[in-house]
Design a protein around this nucleic acid. Structure first.
Lengths: 200, 200
DNA sequence: GTCTATACACCGATAGAC
DNA sequence: GTCTATCGGTGTATAGAC
C-alpha cells in the first residue's frame, strides 16, 4: 500500500505497531487543530513524545505518512458505514455516521492535500466510490422494502445525502445555519417516509 | 479592511495598484495549481517577476495577502451573482455562475486556510451569508411568479443548490461521477418547472 | 517605490552510533 | 529500534540604501 519514494531499501518500522498508530493519531490531531501546514515530522514527534528521526523510521516520506493517515481514517469510516448498513435502521444509522463522526475541518485539509499528493487523491477517490456504493445499497434496499420508487434513483439520493451532510457539517462549524432547519425538516420527512421505524 | 499585524506604522504600497493586483493574481494561480503550502512570498514574487521584499511592501503579512485574495475573489463572485439575479433567467444564470466560475479546488484551499486564519474565516462566513441571500431572493421571486410554494422553502433550496454545486464540482475534478447524471436530471426538472423560459 | 542583504527559525531527509 | 548530529533548503519578516 505505502510505497517507498526516496530510499526504497531503508529499514522500516512495523506497520500497525504502537508507535506507528501513535504517529497517525498525532497526525490526525495536528491536522484537525492546526492544519496541514503544521503537519511536520518535528511537530508529530513533539506531539507524541519521540524524536523526529523516528518518524522517518516508520514512514519513508511525510507524504507517505499523510496517505497512511487518510487510509486508516477512511477504512474506519467505511467499517462504521458497513456496520450501519447491517443495523435495524440502515438509513438513519448511515446518516448518523456522516453527521457525527465526519469532521468537516479535517476533510477540508485532506481535500486540499489531495490536490497535490497523487497517492492521496487516489485514496480519496476510492473512499468516495466505496462509501457511495454502501449508501446506494442501503437506499435500494429501503426503496424496495417500501415498494416505492422515488423521483430520484438511489445513486442520486446517495450523492445528495453526502453533499448535504458535508455542507451542514462545514457550515455548522463556521457558525452559519441559514436554511439548515429547513433541510433538516426535509431529511426528517424523507426518513419518515422511507424508513419509518425499526425493521430489517 | 486589511489590518496591520506586525509593524502597524510601516509604509505600505497602495491598495488596488497594478502590483497589488498582480500579487493577488499570482496568489490565486499558486493556490489553484500548487496548494496553500506553496503560497509563499518568495513564490508569489517569482510568479509575477518582482523581488520578494516587495510583497511585504504591499501586505503586512502573508495572512493579510491571503485574506485580501479571498476578499477580491468573493467580491467578484458576489458581483456576478447580482448580475445573474437581474438577468432574464436568474435561477439558470446563478446556477451557471456556481458551476462554471467556482473552482472547487481553490475553495478547498481557502476552507482549509479559514480553519486557522480568523480574519479569513470571517470573510468566508460573510460570503456564504451574502451569496445565500442572493439565491433566496431569486428563488422567492421565481416561486411567487409561478404561484407555487414548493415542498422546500427558498432558503432550503438555496442551501441545497450550493451544496450540490460544490459536490458536483469537487467530484468532477476528482473524476468521480456516480449519481451526477441523476442529480443533473433533478436540477433540469426543477428548472423546467420553476423557470421554464425567459421571463422577467 | 523598489532594491540588497540578512536574521532567525523551521523544514525534509539522511548518516551512522548504540 | 531508537538515538545524536547534521546537511542543504526554504520560510517570514525586517533594516536600511537608493
Amino acid at each position: 500500500m505505502i510505497v517507498a519514494a526516496t530510499q526504497p531499501n531503508r529499514r522500516m518500522g512495523p506497520v500497525g505497531s504502537v508507535n506507528w498508530h501513535a504517529m497517525l493519531d498525532g497526525a490526525e490531531a495536528i491536522l484537525r487543530d492546526e492544519g496541514y501546514a503544521a503537519l511536520t515530522s518535528r511537530r508529530i514527534a513533539e506531539q507524541i513524545g519521540v524524536k523526529q528521526r523516528l518518524v522517518y523510521y516508520y514512514f519513508h516520506t511525510m507524504d507517505d505518512l499523510i496517505v497512511a493517515t487518510f487510509h486508516r481514517l477512511s477504512t474506519r469510516e467505511l467499517e462504521r458505514l458497513r456496520q450501519a448498513l447491517s443495523s435495524d435502521r440502515p438509513l438513519h444509522e448511515i446518516w448518523n455516521v456522516c453527521i457525527h463522526t465526519t469532521d468537516a475541518r479535517m476533510i477540508s485539509e485532506f481535500m486540499a492535500l489531495a490536490n497535490r499528493i497523487d497517492a492521496l487523491r487516489a485514496e480519496v477517490i476510492r473512499f468516495i466510490k466505496e462509501s457511495r456504493a454502501i449508501r446506494v445499497q442501503a437506499l435500494t434496499c429501503a426503496f424496495e422494502r417500501q415498494s416505492k420508487q422515488g423521483p430520484i434513483p438511489p445513486v442520486g439520493v446517495a450523492l445528495l445525502a453526502t453533499s448535504l451532510a458535508l455542507a451542514l457539517n462545514r457550515e455548522g462549524q463556521l457558525g452559519v445555519d441559514d436554511g439548515h432547519a429547513e433541510i433538516q425538516a426535509l431529511i426528517n420527512g424523507f426518513f419518515a417516509e422511507v424508513e419509518p421505524n425499526g425493521q430489517r
